[in-house]
Amino acid sequence: MNVFDVLGPIMIGPSSSHTAGAVRIGRIVKILIGENIKEANIIFYGSFAAAYKGHGTDKGIIAGLLGYDVADAEIRDSINIARKRGLSFSFGKSFDDSTHPNMASISAVGKSGKKISITAASTGGGNILVSNINGIEVEFSCQYHTLIVPHRDQPGAISLVTHILAAHNINIASMKVFRKEKKGNAIMVIETDQELDNEISREVRKLPGIIDCIIVYAF
């Protein structure tokens, strides 16, 4: 913890959890899909569902889907900006009590037709925790540089990836592998101390059993 964890972030109000956190949830969807989004369906849970307009949670999520940051003034006008940029969206509410109090699920379609669905919670102070990608349970916060690697669940996949990281002198801070079922689709989530470059994701994508490799720079 340092002084700037207590003073900061610079953000658009009114709430670090309901506004800034929402922007970051939208933003991770944009990063993971890797292209402009043309369609998004957003479901709010818990207190997000109860008062999302009064907190600007809706504007925050849309701003994030457009790629804006928590301090961008465009958050206020994000709904109109989305319409101008051809992003169509809908909001729904769920009052399922068993979820995190501030949570959203987003299904998005990119310009190329690529689809993604994620669930993430706003955990306070603008921090988020992504808990599901395309039906696979995951867990990461975007506070570290993170490598997201969807792959087939088969022997050797993990060591091939970590080998490439080692060759690039990247230290792994934490690593988790998530799968839905044996030999099915799985996701590696690797948090690193050093910044990752595109050369790494190019090399990883060429490996057998690897479906994709996405770099999420800490934000």
Partner: peptide, 9 residues
């Protein structure tokens, strides 16, 4: 409260 830019402090 009016969605201005602030510093959480």
């Amino acid at each position: 409260a009016s969605m201005g830019k602030i510093v959480a402090a």
